[in-house]
Amino acid sequence: MVKYKWPILGVLFVGFATVPVWGSEYVLLFCLLYCLYLAMSQMWNLLAGYTSLLSLGQQAFIGFSGYAVAVLTNYYGVYIWLSVLIGGFFSVLLALFMSLFIFRMRGIYFAIGTWIFAEMLLLWFSNWKYVKYGTGLFIKPPHPPSMTTIYYASLIMGAGATAAIYIILRSKIGLGLMAMRDDEDVSEAMGVEIFRSKLFCFMVGSFITGLTAGVLYVFQIFIQPYKAFAIDWTVILVFIVIIGGIGTIEGPIVGTFIYVLLSQWLAEYAHISLLLLGIIAITIILLAPTGIMGTLHQKTGFAILSPRRL
């Protein structure tokens, strides 16, 4: 299996890249959502899984960057994809600003700190006349991009985020990140610059999450602060990463597939959808305590995207 890693990944990627050719519109939609959630969950995985930055505030980047896209396209007529890119940079700026306050905090304090930031942004945007308070904004570029274009943008995000994690983990600092995941204090004693590594990951995470959110809102069209900055986003990402396997690259790949499939399937069972989602999550965690890929890896050593060097 592992021997065929590159052919398998190649087939997968080309399969995804040719969805507009072979897939139905629904397959395209499914893959689009898959890629977007994959990119965002990979980033949460990078933070929580490797650097123990337990962020509960990913929605801060999602909403902030989504609003940046809306404001830039609507008020300034910026080309839609350029505004997505700028949105990503705005997200990094936000992350830098946030880090001034929350990087002194650890563990649960950091988690709550990020969440509070997201809540503050929610209050700010819902009270800000410029973005029409809580009414929300429509992202209406003069020439709305087609679904195929949006799909490719999201494919770039999904594949790009996965590749980015892989490259980071294979790079010089990658081993340090994995060591941090296993034991932060000892990795520090070995000479890992914890603060810088964390900051780096936080920046990367905010950038890719921001870009992805930009694409997401180009797809969504309508953005409204109460949901853009809602903790729901992070809850979804946590769900994906935990059931897939935290601290593995394959985890979010599998977890996202399960989540998107479930959310599509459960939407038809309106009143019990959340209940079912909860039961499924608990079952998976009971059967595979370190997530599907984490447990598979422990039991069989299977890891197709292992960042192992040697």
Partner: peptide, 28 residues
């Protein structure tokens, strides 16, 4: 764990992409 050098990666990657392209064109 199957490690891989950069050159290997390019070679294997190219083969893989080629193979998948063909299947991508046949599949529809």
């Amino acid at each position: 764990y199957d490690g891989i050098s950069r050159r290997d990666f390019m070679k294997k990657g190219a083969v893989a992409v080629g193979a998948a392209m063909t299947s991508g064109l046949v599949l529809p």
